[in-house]
Design a protein around this nucleic acid. Structure first.
Length: 584
RNA sequence: GCGUCCAUAGCUCAGUCCGGAUAGAGCAACAGCCUUCUAAGCUGUGGGUCGCAGGUUCGAGUCCUGCUGGACGCGCCA
């Protein structure tokens, strides 16, 4: 839609410049969409020009409408006055023809643009700990990370998906300690259990034990010390349990379509972080306290004094993150780096970015914390504490959604039609999950209602999938009956229903939404746009037969329009991780 | 105590960055629609002091100030 908007902006700026006797910039022209389609397709409020023209906005609109009459052909539409607004009514058949042609010609590439061409962007997301399986919070993180990565790619950027595995520290030692104490040599194989769940069970076991035994904490500390000193037995146990955790987590990633181009481990970068901090100390940007700890003073910048190295010389979370960032920029010099991390860590990232800047890394100003809100359960369903074993487990949740999808397919008696029941159920489950997690703005806390997420009515992933499957089905039927529609040609002027115009506008605006979503790092804009497109289409095909028409030109015209809708849905769904289904 | 973020329909959320026409969806509720391209659908009805009070503006859900309520942060934890 932008191309038409920009076209009229220019036309209006030229006309207004001539009338006001000063150069009116295109940026001064405010564009909107009229509140009701009958009013036109583009709207330009004229309040700002009333003063300089010494006329009421209403009269300005009337005069402009008259003056713009001769530019209708150029602008593919006519301008009319509507109160204080100048509204433009586009020439529908011409625009519909352009949109359908563009969508079908560009196929899977529709919506892409070159806005970020040549940019290299790192997107870090997921960042699991190796002491427990993934939970619902990770799934929101993953959904956002994957969607943002794909959106940036759609805008031409080269994206590196990066995972940072938190595989060291006291919390990791806790599950190791509990396993050593209570595990009796059990393995995932001996138990027939998914390996990350085994590790997670001992993390929960530790928490229970620590309540009874006040000495537990000290033992965990001792184990961490042994780990840092490289005790072979401890390192071996650590290696085994880490492998279990990571293998299990990777299974979940494969299941949910999450992938990374590069994986970093904190155990591999914390030493570089320490070296960086010591270099900063030498350059005088940090200070050492009498007890040996190293500090950065950010009070001048509205933050606090923060410790960067402990008095015993060991590193902290922020130290590791410094090392990781430096390592990454060496490995793959990026223009931007986006950290998808919960909003409770806002302060941490402010500090991190300032510390990196103080260390003299120019790229520090191109780091961005994409802070997303907490996911909670509805009232009465409890808090998600992985320590207590009450977190919503990712694997379980996906399995539950799949079960419900199977039930739905059976109850609709679609089992024979879909052919691959488990595969279809899996895709519906992922569509439901990803759509639900991406629909609210990332920065806001959200309530995850398991029942609502799997409900198949309303603004959901399955609704998009259903719309796509219906069109796909219709398309197959069209191909089967191709003979009877022979000779029919696409003619945009046959697509004169108001809904057909709404569909064309929605499709024309899709590339703008992709660009905006990428600019704002907000996949929710896409989720909303796709739902509205699907809803308009559902309403349209309910009372406008596509194949059941005498006029084969009308059939062909409508099927092309429907195919374009299908294509736009497919493009958008791919971006937000909702699998497209030919049949459901 | 200090800082950051949030508050829109019974519920879950768009709209706020960048101020413009009677504030929109979905769910739930109620009433309809399957000899017709998949009823996981479609149509209609009811439902809002945009947390409160000021201010700026021709115009405020949107910007500014104060207040109230909530979440998070302010560890030699991650």
């Amino acid at each position: 839609m932008n191309r038409y908007k920009e076209l009229w902006r220019r036309i209006l700026a030229e006309t207004l410049s001539a009338r006001t006797g000063r150069k009116v910039e295109e940026s001064e022209i405010v564009t909107e969409v009229p509140p009701r389609p009958e009013l036109g397709d583009l709207a330009f409020p004229l309040f700002p020009f009333a003063k300089s023209l010494r006329k009421s906005p209403k009269d300005v609109a009337l005069e402009l409408a008259a003056a713009l009459r001769e530019r209708a052909a150029e602008g593919r539409g006519v301008a009319e006055a509507a109160g204080p607004y100048l509204n433009v009514r586009l020439e529908r058949p011409r625009v519909i023809a352009e949109v359908v042609r563009d969508v079908l010609a560009q196929g899977g590439g529709f919506g892409a643009n070159g806005e970020l061409a040549g940019q290299r962007v790192v997107v870090e997301f997921s960042s699991p700990n190796t002491n427990k399986p993934l939970h619902l919070g990770h799934m929101r993180n993953d959904a956002i990370g994957m969607a943002v990565a794909r959106m940036l790619e759609a805008c031409g950027a080269e994206v590196l998906r990066v995972n940072l595995i938190n595989d060291r520290g006291i919390h990791i030692c806790k599950s190791m300690l509990a396993y050593r104490r209570f595990g009796e040599g059990r393995t995932p194989e001996s138990l027939g259990q998914k390996s990350d769940h085994l590790v997670g069970d001992y993390y929960v076991r530790y928490a229970k034990w620590a309540v009874e035994d006040p000495g537990a904490e000290a033992q965990a500390q001792a184990l961490l010390l042994a780990w840092e000193q490289g005790d072979p037995e401890v390192r071996e146990l650590w290696g085994t349990m880490n492998r279990w955790a990571i293998e299990g987590i990777n299974q979940t990633y494969r299941k949910t379509g999450v992938r990374f181009d590069k994986v970093y481990r904190e155990s591999e970068t914390y030493l570089l972080g320490r070296a960086e901090i010591l270099a900063g100390l030498e350059r005088g940007v940090f200070q050492r306290d009498p007890d040996g700890s190293v500090w950065v003073d950010l009070t001048a910048q509205g933050l606090d004094r923060k410790v960067l190295l402990r008095s015993d010389g060991t590193s902290l979370y922020v130290t590791q993150d410094v090392g990781t960032a430096v390592q990454r920029h060496r490995d793959w010099p990026f223009n931007r780096q986006i950290y998808v991390v919960g909003n409770e860590q806002r302060y941490h990232f402010q500090v991190l970015f300032k510390v990196l800047a103080l260390l003299g890394h120019a790229w520090a100003e191109n780091l961005h914390h994409l802070a997303y809100g907490m996911v909670t359960l509805p009232e009465g369903m409890g808090k998600m504490k992985s320590r207590e074993g009450t977190a919503v487990d990712a694997d379980e949740l996906v399995a539950d959604l799949e079960r419900l999808a199977v039930e739905q397919i059976r109850s609709k008696e679609r089992e024979a039609e879909v052919e691959d029941l488990p595969g279809t159920a899996e895709k519906i489950a992922l569509g439901a999950l990803h759509y639900y997690l991406l629909a609210p703005s990332p920065y806001k806390d959200m309530v995850f209602d398991p029942n609502e997420s799997i409900s198949f009515t309303g603004a959901t992933g399955p609704y998009l999938q259903y719309t796509g499957a219906r069109i796909s089905s219709m398309r197959r039927k069209f191909a089967e009956r191709a003979e009877s529609f022979r000779g029919g040609e696409f003619r945009a002027e046959l697509l004169s229903a108001p809904e057909e115009w709404e569909l064309a506008k929605s499709m024309a605006a899709f590339p703008d939404t992709v660009a905006q979503a990428a600019r704002e790092l907000n996949p929710a804009l896409l989720a909303t746009h796709l739902f509205e497109l699907a809803r308009t289409y559902a309403s349209y095909y309910h009372d406008h037969p596509v194949l059941h028409n005498e006029d084969s030109a009308l059939v062909v015209s409508r099927i092309r329009l429907a195919e374009a809708v299908r294509q736009v849905l497919a493009c958008g769904m791919a971006l937000i991780g909702v699998p497209f289904l030919e049949k459901m």
